[in-house]
Design a protein around this nucleic acid. Structure first.
Lengths: 257, 257
DNA sequence: GCTATGACCTCCCGTTACGGCCGGTTCAAG
DNA sequence: CTTGAACCGGCCGTAACGGGAGGTCATAGC
């Protein structure tokens, strides 16, 4: 019915809404913000849209459907009368913004799948432990940059799951040994404990990449361990008290080298 | 500093913010909505956070980083004290929501790339024509469902670009021929124009899939053409007046069959 | 003891793109 | 002329805070 009338036909707001799949409220909103008003009003104030107005609405809707904000649409519709450059720029920017968003989403889905997998793996029936995992995630996120986390993940992938497990159990052995020494009162300059601590450091560095980036990541990890060691230690099978004592002892040994 | 104090240490809002990478404003917001308050206040009303509060904050932050809304976080943190089922559900739902979002984004990026490609192809230096393309996109989006549009796109992909071009130029020939007949006053029951219209319909149906879905799409296209033919005709190299006359003529011929 | 400075407090407005409701006018069909 | 539908402007609400105003509190240095 619409296209069959001539171009001087005037439309009420409801007709426009029905014909274009928008709502009356939306049209009034566009009018309010100056994006798209009716070119005419009746004597009593009812909006009357012209064919030009409707065409402009179609343009607005198309650009909205591409995810553009209304103020950008307004700008670009004003600019693009004679030149498409502004439009090109806007669409290009929107494209890269969407690509960035897609990247973030992919990262989140990977994380979610990981978490759900761990919940389904028979390993985690305990809500408390799951919560602690969440806390640790957050702690890591606030202390490592995204790239650093990717670096660590890549390193773990290189080592393979069994490599990671081997490192973990090796580390557990070191912890046990050092705890024994600490609690037995072995002096910090004893060469045997010095050797144990050196192996501890070597083991930790296996999780970091070589080069400058690796060093930065390592520094971040060290800072994290210093500042939040106790919180992280809640994930571990030793009591916070013993871990605290252990960390003090390791620091002493390092100083005594 | 933080982890090295004991669990009864109380923290000011600024300390918590700095330590966890949030802002003071955010913490006050969480307090306001009842998601996370400080367990204590000083006599003068300053918030004092306990280690438990900070742990809860880490949980909140981890879940927020997964894209969950604050009210869901609040609910699930209340539920998950003894049972992880609610958490599982929430994370699963979030995963599929993110996947859906990724799909939408992919669709938008494809559309944007198409538009940008057309702008770079030497074919479109004209802003007016680009605007018309936008309008047409919007018209299509309001008249076809997403599946129908995908169907049409798939059909075009099957036909290949040269197939589409062949159909277009064949259709252009039909338009020219029918316009000639219409303007020459050939009667609507003339078998030759009947044949031309039949070829017109056949050509159109090449763009639709077979079966029930195809029929629905076809019906939508017919409706679109009836209601918005004139607007669509602006994309075509014939004047609106002549297209209008042509459409009337074609309708006559169909009735005369 | 005084003061300067930073940290903290509570309100409140602004952001995006509308949805929805209210009380009052206007239009159009019968 | 009536009456029900359409339309009007205005206002509140949304999610998750950011930012500012205007006032109070704490503490380090003098």
């Amino acid at each position: 019915m619409i296209g069959n009338d001539d171009d001087r036909r005037l439309w009420s707001i409801g007709e426009v809404a029905r014909a274009t799949g928008t709502t009356v409220r939306t049209l009034r909103h566009y009018d309010e913000i100056g994006l798209l008003g009716a070119s005419a009003r009746t004597a009593s104030g009812h909006r009357r849209y012209t064919a030009r107005d409707v065409r402009r609405l179609y343009r607005v809707r198309a650009l909205r459907a591409l995810g553009l904000p209304l103020d950008e649409i307004q700008r670009v519709l004003a600019d693009t009368a004679e030149d498409l450059g502004s439009m090109r720029e806007l669409l290009t920017a929107q494209l890269s913004a969407l690509e960035a968003q897609a990247g973030r989403i992919q990262q989140l889905t990977a994380q979610l799948r990981g978490l759900l997998g761990r919940m389904d793996g028979a390993s985690m029936p305990d809500p408390e432990q799951f919560m602690t995992t969440l806390e640790t995630m957050s702690v890591f996120e606030t202390h490592f940059t995204t790239e650093q986390q990717e670096q660590l993940a890549a390193r773990r992938a290189e080592m393979g799951p069994e490599g990671v497990e081997a490192a973990k159990s090796g580390w557990a052995g070191l912890v046990e040994a050092l705890l024994a020494h600490a609690e037995a009162g072995t002096p910090a300059d004893d060469p045997e404990v010095g050797d144990l601590v050196a192996r501890w450091d070597a083991l930790g560095s296996r999780f970091h990449a070589a080069g400058e980036d690796g060093e930065a990541t390592k520094a971040a990890a060290r800072r994290l361990w210093d500042e939040r060691g106790e919180e992280l230690a809640r994930n571990l099978p030793w009591s916070p008290d013993r871990m605290r004592a252990l960390l003090r002892y390791v620091a002493e040994v390092r100083e005594a080298r």
